[in-house]
């Protein structure tokens, strides 16, 4: 039997959870146990008084799988709310990366010029290296990292995507 290939979509999910031990393991275990993709994941406490953490997950799958992921997350006991920012609201996404480039001479000055063009900041420097801090959409960071390869890219550390809906409403 052959099925027509289904459309694969990329979705950004925002998940508000009780900040309790094991909650991240529950979310990640759900993805690994059911074979869902995680392209990016970030998590941090967002309200100390209310013990709330926010998880942002970027995932890919068919529309049916994305709906499943949402519903599976929603029924985990310590989860307050799940929002699919890709379909439910216009949203903004950002990622931060630190990019280390090693080199001297022309390559070094070219790296610095490109960094300016991308509005990356130098946050560490030696005579033979820079660490740039760059913020933006993921594809901008991808592009920056690609450009740095011939100029002496040695290491990249990225936060993963954080996202929030546009406009005055909270999730």
């Amino acid at each position: 039997m052959s099925h027509p290939p289904e459309r694969i979509e990329r979705h950004t999910l925002s998940i508000l959870v009780d900040n309790e031990p094991g909650v991240l393991a529950r979310v990640i275990g759900l993805f690994s146990g059911r074979g869902y993709n995680i392209d990016s994941l970030t998590v941090s406490e967002v309200s100390h008084e209310r013990h709330l953490s926010r998880i942002t997950i970027v995932t890919t799958g068919t529309p049916m799988v994305i709906e499943q992921i949402r519903n599976q997350l929603d029924r985990l006991v310590p989860i307050h709310r799940v929002r699919d920012l890709t379909v439910e609201a216009a949203s903004v996404e950002r990622e931060l990366a630190m990019v280390k480039v090693r080199g001297t001479g022309d390559a070094r000055s070219e790296a610095l010029r490109l960094a300016e063009a991308f509005r990356a900041r130098v946050i560490d420097a030696t005579t033979e290296s820079f660490v740039f801090e760059i913020t933006g959409k993921s594809d901008k960071i991808d592009q920056f990292a690609v450009l740095m390869v011939p100029l002496g890219l040695v290491e990249v550390s990225r936060t993963g995507v954080v996202a929030i809906s546009r406009g005055p409403e909270a999730m």
């Binding site: 499943q68 519903n71 929603d74």
Partner: peptide
């Protein structure tokens, strides 16, 4: 259980 909906069959 909402996660049972559309899991295997639309």
């Amino acid at each position: 259980d909402p996660s049972s909906i559309n899991k295997n069959v639309k």
